[in-house]
């Protein structure tokens, strides 16, 4: 229970020395290690916060880009709809034009076909009428009709217009009054004489007619004086009628 002064003093010195040694060789390295670890943690934390901020900025940037893209998409979609509407309207107009052209073409074709059928019907009816007329005139053909047609020719010669009469006179002069008279049946001397007499009076010179028989004339005569031909028979009239009906000369 006594205090040794030397031990007392040296223990104080010992403790102070130990304090200095531990402070120098133990606490300082530990504090440095703790500080280093804290700095590492703070650095990592700051880096994480920086990356978080960068990530937030990136997210915000991508969100803005997304909004821009959505707006651009909506604009493009609107433009596309407008272009599609224009294309649709143009295609519809073209289709309508084509349909109208096709309708007109079909209408024209139909009209042509109808006209053709009408023409065919007219031709058929004309030919039928011609055949019926031919049959009827064949049945009516005879001497009386020949006489009537001759009389009609002589009457018509007396009523010729001045230019035709002059042309007939020129033809008679050019052929010395010789002419051909074709009939369906033999004309007979009396009728031939009447005709020659009427012609001679008309052209003012003696006319001599040579008679021929052409059964296809059916009834009546055909008088040929040079380049002038006078028809007064059923066969030539039917032929004229047939040509006029078919469009020929």
């Amino acid at each position: 229970m006594t205090i040794d002064p030397l031990t007392f003093i040296l223990e104080i010195v010992n403790f102070l020395v130990l304090l200095w040694l531990l402070k120098r060789f133990l606490y300082a390295p530990i504090r440095d290690a703790i500080t280093l670890r804290q700095q590492t943690l703070n650095h990592g934390l700051q880096e994480a916060e920086t990356r978080e901020l960068e990530a937030r900025d990136t997210i915000e940037a991508y969100r803005r880009h997304l909004d821009d893209w959505n707006a651009e998409k909506a604009g493009r979609h609107h433009e596309l709809n407008q272009e599609l509407a224009k294309e649709r309207d143009a295609a519809l107009a073209r289709t309508r034009e084509l349909a109208e052209a096709e309708r007109l073409r079909l209408h024209s074709l139909l009209q042509q076909e109808l006209d053709s059928e009408k023409q065919a019907a007219r031709d058929l009816s004309g030919r039928t009428a011609l055949a019926m007329t031919r049959l009827m005139l064949e049945r009516l053909a005879g001497s009386e009709l020949d006489q009537a047609l001759l009389r009609m020719l002589i009457d018509d010669l007396g009523q010729l217009a001045e230019p035709e009469l002059a042309a007939l006179q020129t033809a008679a002069v050019n052929h010395q009054g010789r002419c051909l008279v074709a009939s369906a049946r033999p004309l007979g001397d009396a009728r031939l004489y009447d005709l020659q007499s009427a012609l001679s009076r008309l052209v003012g010179m003696e006319v001599s007619c040579t008679p021929t028989v052409e059964p296809q004339l059916l009834s009546g005569v055909r008088l040929t004086l040079g380049d002038r031909v006078l028809h007064a028979n059923l066969g030539d009239e039917l032929a004229f009628f047939e040509r006029s009906m078919t469009g020929g000369n």
């Binding site: 006594t2 205090i3 031990t7 007392f8 102070l16």
Partner: peptide
């Protein structure tokens, strides 16, 4: 050493 009063007294003085 702490069973020695000189040591504990020294520490108390410190």
């Amino acid at each position: 050493p702490t069973a020695d009063l000189s040591v504990t007294a020294a520490l108390a003085v410190v």
